[in-house]
Design a protein around this nucleic acid. Structure first.
Lengths: 146, 146
DNA sequence: TGACAATAATTGCGATGTTAAGTAAATCCT
DNA sequence: AGGATTTACTTAACATCGCAATTATTGTCA
């Protein structure tokens, strides 16, 4: 017979969706004023941290699919937030880099972003907050297995 | 000056996205064969567990937005997976219920779904798996605050 | 070298996410 | 009673997701 499935309230996918919903709320509120989406924000954050990246690596680190990134970058180039140049050695690659405008947008939101992150940390407590990030990392590391 | 933001690898939103990506992979693979999306699967799981629900409650429990649910239900009614009837007392409400076909679809995937869930539990370990669900629940409970 | 495979990115399509506006029904309030 | 609010859902518009197919470029190897 069919096994009994766990309660939906203890289902990992549903719990992740609910958590994401709660976490993204304040972020979207913050970003709305700057006219960037949460995806564009992730792209900016990754690029500012890592420097110029090819599209594949950028997509992976920003948790975006390649096709989505292609379209997102197009909009960001138009807004002057990033640049996109063809790779020299490998002309298949598209090197994406953040612009001064993009850096300025991050700076303009850094205070609020830090406040929001601190709010979560305070809500869960330092130790549990770090433990959560570790656990989520362990899930992501298992990507593709099974 | 602008505060320094945490590394993107320790960013809660990005960690959640990566975890979701990893967790959903095997599920989508499983559901693809049945011709249902992960969202439709969540709707079925919630309805089978809770019985008939109005659209708002269903959307909340399945972690879907109302507009998305409206469209998803339309497709599911067409496929015979759920029924949708106007509320008797309150005719604004739409009562959604799972059909025998929907129950059968869950049963057909229950074994594989249980295997996948067990894989995560084994990967993290019982205690850490439960702790993760608790932590995600705490995040979701904070929805709206701040 | 030249067909073939592999890689990086783009494009197309249908479904969903997100916000805002619209519609219908119930509730409030004097 | 009845006009203003609130509530539940739907529709609309646009961006993104997720998958598949395509294009352009590079790498492989007989």
């Amino acid at each position: 017979m069919a096994p009994k499935l766990v309660s939906t309230s203890r289902s990992l996918p549903i719990a992740l969706m609910h958590a994401r919903e709660a976490v993204m709320g304040p972020i979207r509120e913050m970003l709305g004023a700057s006219g960037v989406t949460e995806q564009q924000w992730r792209v900016l954050r990754v690029l500012e941290e890592a420097g110029a990246l090819d599209a594949s690596t950028l997509a992976q680190r920003a948790a975006l699919l390649q096709p989505s990134l292609t379209r997102i970058i197009k909009g960001m180039v138009a807004k002057g937030l990033v640049t996109q140049v063809q790779g020299e050695h490998d002309r298949r690659r598209q090197e994406v880099a953040i612009t001064d405008t993009g850096v300025a947008l991050i700076a303009a939101n850094a205070t609020r972003a830090a406040e929001i992150a601190e709010g979560w940390r305070a809500h869960l407590g330092e130790d549990r907050y770090e433990a959560l990030l570790d656990l989520l990392g362990d899930l992501a590391d298992r990507d593709g297995v099974q």
